[in-house]
Amino acid sequence: VDYIVEYDYDAQHDDELTIRKGDIIKNVKKLEEEGWLEGELNGKRGMFPDNFVKEIK
């Protein structure tokens, strides 16, 4: 499942992704941690907030 970024987010920890509006995040999975998703961007896998992105259908 792929998501498109709607709002910029700067990573706060090493396991998070810095994302920018218009980025496409690939292979996204829901995490047990409420409010977070995990996906791949530019060869890096990491977490990001689910309210900054929208699923591409």
Rank of each mutant, 00 (worst) to 15 (best):
L31K: 10
I56K: 05
K54L: 10
Y7E: 14
Y3P: 00
L17E: 00
W36L: 04
D10Q: 11
D2S: 14
H13T: 09
E6D: 04
D50M: 15
K44T: 12
K30H: 07
D10H: 12
D8G: 07
K57T: 15
I24A: 02
I56H: 07
D14K: 13
K26P: 01
K44D: 04
N27S: 12
E34M: 14
E40H: 07
E33L: 14
G35K: 05
M47W: 07
K30W: 06
I56W: 02
R45Y: 08
D2K: 15
G43F: 14
E40N: 09
E55H: 04
E55F: 02
I4P: 01
L41G: 02
V28D: 00
I19S: 01
I19R: 00
E55D: 03
K21G: 07
D23S: 10
H13P: 01
D50K: 15
R20L: 04
V28M: 02
V1N: 12
F52S: 05
E33T: 08
R45T: 08
G46L: 02
G35H: 11
D23F: 07
L41R: 04
E16V: 03
P49E: 03
F48L: 11
G35D: 05
K44R: 14
F52I: 07
A11V: 02
I4Q: 08
W36D: 01
L31Q: 09
V53N: 03
A11F: 02
I25M: 03
N51M: 12
F52T: 05
E32S: 14
P49T: 07
R45V: 09
D2A: 15
I56P: 03
D2M: 15
G46Y: 01
V28S: 07
D2R: 15
E16I: 02
K26T: 14
D10S: 12
N51Q: 11
K57E: 15
K21H: 07
D15V: 10
I24R: 10
V28L: 03
I19W: 01
I25V: 10
K29R: 12
R20Q: 07
L37W: 06
P49L: 10
I24M: 06
V5T: 11
D15Y: 13
G43T: 05
G22D: 05
D2Y: 15
K21S: 07
E16S: 04
H13R: 13
Y3I: 02
F48P: 01
V5L: 01
I19N: 00
L37R: 04
E32V: 14
G22E: 03
G22I: 01
K44S: 08
I24T: 05
N42I: 04
G39M: 00
N51Y: 10
Y7V: 09
E34L: 11
E34H: 11
L17H: 05
W36S: 02
G22P: 01
K30D: 07
Y7A: 14
P49I: 07
G39E: 00
L41N: 05
V28R: 01
D14E: 13
E16L: 02
R45H: 05
I56V: 07
H13S: 13
N42F: 15
D14L: 14
I4N: 04
V28H: 01
D10A: 14
P49Q: 13
N27A: 10
I56L: 08
A11Y: 02
G35F: 05
F48M: 09
L31M: 11
P49F: 12
N51V: 11
E16K: 04
T18Q: 08
E32N: 11
D8I: 02
G22L: 05
D14Y: 15
F52V: 06
L31Y: 08
Y3T: 03
N51P: 05
N42E: 08
I19P: 01
D14F: 14
R45F: 08
K57S: 15
W36T: 03
G46I: 04
E6H: 12
G22R: 06
Y3W: 11
K30T: 06
I56D: 06
Y9I: 01
I24Y: 06
N27T: 08
L37T: 05
F48R: 00
D14N: 12
I24G: 02
D23G: 05
G43S: 09
N51G: 09
K57G: 15
V1D: 06
E38W: 07
G35Q: 04
E40P: 00
E16M: 06
Y7I: 09
I19E: 00
F52H: 09
K26Y: 15
M47I: 10
E6Q: 11
E40Q: 09
Y9A: 02
Y9R: 15
I4E: 07
G43I: 02
Y7L: 14
G46H: 01
I4F: 10
G43Y: 09
G46N: 01
N51W: 07
I24Q: 04
D8L: 02
K21E: 06
R45L: 06
E40L: 12
Y9V: 01
K26E: 06
T18L: 03
E40S: 10
K57N: 15
E6F: 11
L31S: 09
E34N: 10
L31N: 10
I4V: 08
F48H: 00
T18Y: 03
P49A: 11
E6P: 03
N27K: 07
R20I: 05
E55I: 11
H13W: 12
K29P: 01
E33D: 12
D8A: 11
N27Y: 15
L41D: 01
V53M: 03
G46Q: 01
F48Q: 00
F52E: 02
R45M: 04
N27M: 06
K21W: 11
L31A: 13
T18S: 08
K29A: 11
L41H: 06
E33A: 12
T18I: 04
T18E: 04
M47N: 07
E40D: 11
D14G: 13
D2I: 13
M47K: 08
L41E: 01
D10W: 11
I56N: 05
G46D: 00
P49H: 15
N51T: 14
R45A: 04
I56M: 04
G35L: 04
K57R: 07
G46K: 03
E38D: 12
D15F: 13
A11I: 01
V1G: 13
K54T: 14
G35W: 04
E55N: 03
E55L: 08
L37D: 04
K29Q: 11
D2W: 15
H13E: 09
I24F: 05
I25S: 01
Q12N: 08
N27D: 11
G22K: 04
G39W: 00
I24P: 02
L41Y: 12
E34P: 10
E6N: 06
Y3A: 10
E32I: 10
T18P: 03
M47P: 05
V53Q: 03
P49W: 09
D14R: 14
D8Q: 07
I4A: 07
E32A: 10
I56E: 04
T18F: 05
Y9W: 10
K29D: 09
E34I: 10
D10I: 14
N42R: 13
V28T: 06
D8F: 04
R45I: 07
D10E: 08
K29I: 12
K44Y: 09
K44Q: 14
D15S: 13
K30V: 12
Y9L: 04
D50W: 15
D10M: 12
R20E: 03
I25A: 02
D8S: 14
Y7W: 09
I4D: 03
V53R: 03
K21A: 09
G35S: 06
A11W: 02
E55W: 01
D15K: 14
G35P: 05
E34G: 09
V5K: 00
L41K: 04
I19L: 15
K54W: 05
F52M: 08
H13A: 10
Q12L: 14
Y9Q: 02
F48W: 02
T18G: 03
V28P: 03
E16N: 03
L31T: 11
P49Y: 11
V5I: 03
P49M: 14
